[in-house]
């Protein structure tokens, strides 16, 4: 949680300094839920994170440098500048790179689970992460229904952070609670306080275990508040002040720190040392990635299919423009 928070704050500051291409999307306020999801999974499980799952990605095993490389567009990153920011992953390792269309990853997780079942690989769970906005999409409905029909070990984690971009819950859905939707799919639902680190740590492994034991798809609805804009371009002026002062608005990282001190798992001095250590680690990784090469249009193969001999070579295709900004001079 701390590593995700510190790394994302640093990336946000690079964004404000104009050093990031494209958007920056923070998980601020969602780290407790996300990290608990990542920790609840095994490395051999399937994880389809969404934009606010920086903490869960780290917990699932993504090296910090992958996130930094993808944000900074390093050629050495998993997406090599072809895709950026939160769009990263290693599909073959069960770590699925999201597309931007909400709810679309649910059925892809289903497909991985379906294939592993067909191949006879036991004890797999797939976790797809979505927000309140995704629950309005057709993909969400089709994906959850499909998982239920196939009785797949899917955990569908819904972070209800009260706003989909700027749209509040009451303009997003009309049911009393998102959890009410689960019954319509024949799916069990669990509701949790996403700001409560200990509750997240307790519930998510239990839910994942239920799915692993053959309990069918599980839905989790977590209540929390996004403590930032949709992206760093967004000042989030639309968030109602009463939310910020309510229990939903408390910072899950502070809650976690207090809970751990209460449990005497850590003391204030140790926490401070963790913070310093984490800052140094993040600074080191960013400094390293900033020295790495950017993608080079002349070295790109510009090939969208695997089968090389079926690639179209058309004279009318746009040649690489040597005058493009950042392009090396011939």
């Amino acid at each position: 949680m701390l590593l995700a928070r510190v790394a994302e704050e640093k990336i946000a500051s690079l964004y404000r300094a104009g050093k990031i291409h494209g958007g920056v999307f923070l998980g601020r306020g969602q780290e407790a839920l996300s990290v608990a999801a990542g920790l609840a999974l095994r490395k051999s499980d399937v994880f389809a994170p969404l934009i606010r799952d920086g903490a869960g990605r780290l917990a699932f095993g993504e090296p910090l440098i992958d996130a930094v490389r993808t944000y900074l567009g390093s050629r050495l990153g998993p997406m090599r500048g072809r895709d950026g920011n939160v769009h990263r992953g290693y599909p073959r390792e069960g770590y699925l790179p999201m597309i931007s269309h909400l709810g679309a990853m649910i059925s892809v997780v289903n497909g991985v689970l379906f294939a592993r079942r067909m191949k006879g690989i036991p004890d797999v769970v797939g976790l797809a992460s979505v927000g309140d906005g995704a629950t309005s999409t057709g993909s969400f409905h089709e994906g959850l229904n499909q998982a239920a029909v196939e009785r797949l070990p899917l955990v569908l984690l819904i972070a209800n952070n009260q706003y989909a971009y700027s749209t509040p819950n009451h303009r997003q859905f009309a049911c009393r609670d998102l959890a009410d939707k689960a019954a319509g799919y024949g799916v069990t639902c669990h509701t949790i306080d996403g700001t409560d680190f200990m509750e997240c740590l307790r519930v998510l492994p239990a839910v994942v275990a239920r799915a692993r034991e053959g309990g069918g798809p599980q839905m989790v609805v977590a209540r929390l508040l996004r403590l930032c804009g949709h992206g760093e371009h967004d000042d989030a002026g639309y968030i109602a002040p009463e939310f910020k002062t309510s229990a939903l608005g408390r910072d899950c990282l502070h809650v976690a720190e207090e809970q751990m001190m209460q449990e005497q798992a850590v003391n204030a001095a140790e926490l401070e040392a963790w913070r310093t250590e984490t800052m140094e680690k993040v600074e080191r990784v960013i400094a390293r990635v900033q020295r790495e090469p950017a993608p080079d249009p002349f070295q790109e193969d510009w090939r969208a299919i695997q089968t090389a001999h079926l690639v179209e070579v058309s004279a009318s295709a746009n040649p690489v423009d040597s005058r493009a900004p950042g392009a090396p001079q011939p």
Partner: peptide, 21 residues
């Protein structure tokens, strides 16, 4: 047999293809 869910049918196919099917 698939449910009448063209979107989910294709999503499932992508997931299965990732797994080598």
């Amino acid at each position: 047999d698939a449910p009448i869910s063209e979107d989910a049918m294709m999503g499932l196919a992508v997931g299965a293809a990732i797994e080598g099917l």
